[in-house]
Design a protein around this nucleic acid. Structure first.
Length: 691
RNA sequence: UGCGGGGUGGAGCAGUUGGUAGCUCGUCGGGCUCAUAACCCGAAGGUCACUGGUUCGAGUCCAGUCCCCGCUACCA
């Protein structure tokens, strides 16, 4: 039997709130939900007092923008995706005690309570700044919704935060002739007041609590991120925004302003718990607030992806700390990112495996995806999902090792003993060895799970099935049945005990499969304390019918998925983006000022430590000169040497990364940002004038 | 450029406090036939990115270099 010690009486577990402006994909599942669910199911199997909460994050500008684009309301958007996301979670067995939503009244009230608590304590810094305001739409504009002329390169269409042409990062007020993308009219500057949380003030406390207290608790990737942030010094963060979709700031003077995400989304964890407590007659404060005796405090754990580390390790704890009555997270086991077939998952480019589509295309195979994702969780570094790997893991591991063992045992039992568990006659040394090995697994697996090493835990679990297959191969009951039926009874009894153990230990990882096994073994669900026992199934127990737990993934299924991804890629390439607006007319004299020539690339090399820059040596017909060009992402130095190009030769030279660039290569940029050379169709004499 | 993470047999990864380098898949050979051509055994395959250093001993600690990923900068 396993004796695992749990230092806490109570557990509050959260998984990141998904943003309700789109469906979920496998990256979400692998980042925050599968790890959280395995952990929670494991705690429950150990009869721990645990609440697992999550919900949709339903506020913010992105949702209003999406609504506008689709000609609908924010409410319709969040209703649609909240329902879809909730359904996906249910289907994959992510066992939240409650899946709530931040648009609920109880959440608005609690967020406002938090704000007022901090406000009345005088925690906030109030600051008035000038922001652009759209008079027609009666709202302040987010940086990205203002465009204008870049003060640096003079190109038009620069955004309020950055000019995409020259890369300079900007403030909206830097733009020349700013235009609101909402109304198409120039915005006006207007003063607005906001409430800032002085993170700098909490820095000493954070350094103590986090850098000292969590050094050996947090994973290296999480700890490193936080240390990096603290090292560069924290700045006050605005807790309010001029938005029109969110929780109202509960102050008379802040009419029309909303709480920003920091004081909205994470409070969702708490409001969800509150609602759960109301529904079930529990006391939510026991899960979130400091108890009179600190030994009674709950253990708070946030499961998130790496994009959320700073938010959960610095901002939210600071808020909880400033409030004072709340417990702080014990750990934040953030995962890195999951890639798909060599590329980043991308919602906008539709490079993803969507959960709602998977459910349609692989009905009943939720545990297969859970298994594969668990075995490749990006726990220490980014990892990769490929459909070939998915197929290999399902076929070679789930089907061949696990499913096959269970099937063998049941088929043999039905064949020889009508599906009855036979008594053990005499245990050989081999049998005892099997039992003693079996006994070790629950502890190993528990140790891995409590350390958030879920891949390792799952691999250990599979070793139990391997142990069973080896035992059968070594014992050869199909041969023994002809000579020694008594021995076969014992062998099958031992094998069945292994299978029953597999059912128990599968529960955190493969909940549907575990249930099917319980049904098949005609055996009720058991807690973790029973794992490791070799007397789970008593002699005379009647087993159910044998069914296959898993079936193979075919090449056709894999190919169909691969085809789907490349179709998405193609469709993507064909999207016609908005063609930039025409610039103002210029006179012919302006045009002829430009001296453009046909040149030839004599040499090319990557500029060290840059991503985009190539240093080119160009024969212009007039001279040989150096040009630095931002094309390294699309062209390797080798492939372009000798190539004919168009070069603007009388452009004022400029130093880039310490290299003097004399001129500019003419490139054309297509919709997805790909560059290509603009050059004569046939080889012309180097130095020929282009006009 | 700054910060963080990572670089381990063909592929994907483990290696906790320094003490003979492991796992899964793949490959090759063998065994078995109860089982979804599934299972079991064995073998080949690694100068643990590189260079120095600490140490009796380093994948593991220290310093430096290179490469990959994320955020950041560089596109004249």
């Amino acid at each position: 039997m396993s004796n695992i010690t749990f230092p806490f009486k109570r557990y509050t577990i959260t998984s990141a709130l998904p943003y309700a402006n789109g469906p979920l994909h496998i990256g979400h599942l692998a980042g925050a939900y599968i790890p959280g669910d395995i952990y929670v199911r494991f705690l429950r199997l150990n009869a721990k007092d645990v609440v697992y909460v999550c919900g949709s994050d339903e506020h913010g500008a992105a949702i209003t923008i999406k609504a506008k684009k689709e000609g609908t309301t924010p409410q319709a958007i969040i209703d649609k995706y909240h329902a879809q996301i909730k359904e996906s979670f249910e289907q994959f067995g992510i066992s939240f005690d409650i899946y709530h939503r931040t648009s609920e009244k109880i959440h608005h009230e609690l967020s406002q309570e938090f704000f007022l608590n901090l406000y009345e304590k005088g925690e906030f810094i109030e600051q008035v700044t000038e922001q652009y305001y759209d008079e027609e739409f009666h709202q302040f504009l987010a940086d990205r919704y203002i465009t204008g002329t870049c003060p640096n390169c003079k190109s038009e269409g620069a955004y309020g935060d950055q000019c995409e042409k020259c890369g300079t990062s900007l403030n909206p007020t830097d733009l020349i002739n700013p235009i609101s993308t909402l109304s198409g009219k120039p915005p006006v500057l207007r003063e607005t007041k906001h409430w800032y949380l002085p993170l700098d003030k909490y820095q000493p406390w954070l350094e103590k609590w986090l850098l000292e207290g969590k050094k050996d608790v947090l994973k290296p990737n999480v700890y490193g991120q936080c240390r990096s942030w603290l090292k560069s010094g924290l700045q006050p963060r605005s807790m309010t925004r001029d938005l029109d979709w969110g929780v109202d700031v509960p102050l008379e003077e802040a009419k029309g302003k909303k709480l920003y995400v920091w004081l909205d989304a994470p409070i969702g964890y708490i409001s969800a718990t509150k609602q759960w407590a109301l529904d079930t007659g529990n006391d939510w404060e026991k899960y979130w607030k400091k108890q009179p005796d600190a030994a009674d405090d709950a253990c708070l754990i946030h499961f998130i992806g790496k994009d959320n580390i700073v938010f959960h390790c610095i901002t939210f704890p600071s808020i909880l700390h400033a409030h004072g009555e709340y417990i702080l997270p014990e750990n934040v086991p953030a995962n890195e990112f999951l890639n798909l077939e060599g590329d980043k998952l991308s919602t906008s480019r539709n490079h993803a495996v969507w959960l709602h589509e998977y459910l349609n295309e692989f009905p009943g195979k939720q545990d297969e995806l859970r298994y594969v994702l668990t075995s490749i969780l990006p726990e220490t570094s980014d990892s990769e999902f490929t459909w070939r790997d998915f197929q290999a893991r399902v076929n070679n591991e789930l089907v061949a090792i696990f499913g096959n063992f269970v099937n063998r045992v049941l088929v043999l039992s039905h064949k020889y003993f009508d599906g009855k568990v036979m008594p053990v006659n005499h245990l050989t040394d081999t049998d005892r060895l099997i039992f003693s090995e079996l006994e070790r697994y629950p502890k190993h697996i528990a140790g891995s799970i409590t350390q958030f090493r879920f891949r390792e835990a799952l691999a250990q679990f599979m070793n139990v099935a391997r142990l069973g297959n080896k035992y059968l191969a070594d014992s050869e009951p199909w041969k023994l049945i002809k000579t020694d039926e008594e021995r076969v009874k014992t062998v099958l009894n031992v094998s069945l005990q292994l299978a029953a153990n597999l059912a128990i230990m599968a529960q955190p990882f493969l909940p549907r499969t575990a249930q099917r096994m319980f049904d098949m073994l005609n055996f009720s669900a058991h807690g973790w304390q029973d794992a490791g026992s070799n007397t789970l199934l008593p002699a005379g127990h009647q087993l159910g019918e044998a069914q296959l737990l898993f079936e193979k993934i075919t090449d056709e299924q894999v190919n169909a998925q691969l085809a789907k991804l490349s179709q998405a890629k193609e469709a993507n390439a064909n999207i016609t983006k908005d063609v930039p607006e025409a610039k103002n007319n210029i006179v012919f004299e302006d045009f002829v000022k430009m001296d453009i020539r046909a040149g030839k690339i004599l040499a090319a090399e990557k500029v060290a430590k840059t991503k985009k820059l190539l240093k080119l040596t160009i024969d212009t017909g007039l001279d040989e000169r150096t040009v630095v060009s931002g094309i390294a992402e699309f062209f390797s130095p080798e492939e372009i040497v000798g190539r004919q190009v168009s070069i603007l030769v009388n452009l004022e030279p400029r130093e880039i990364k310490g290299i003097l660039s004399q001129g500019m290569i003419l490139m054309v940029e297509d919709a997805d940002g790909r560059l290509d050379f603009v050059a004569p169709q046939t080889t012309v004499q180097t130095g020929s004038v282009i006009r």
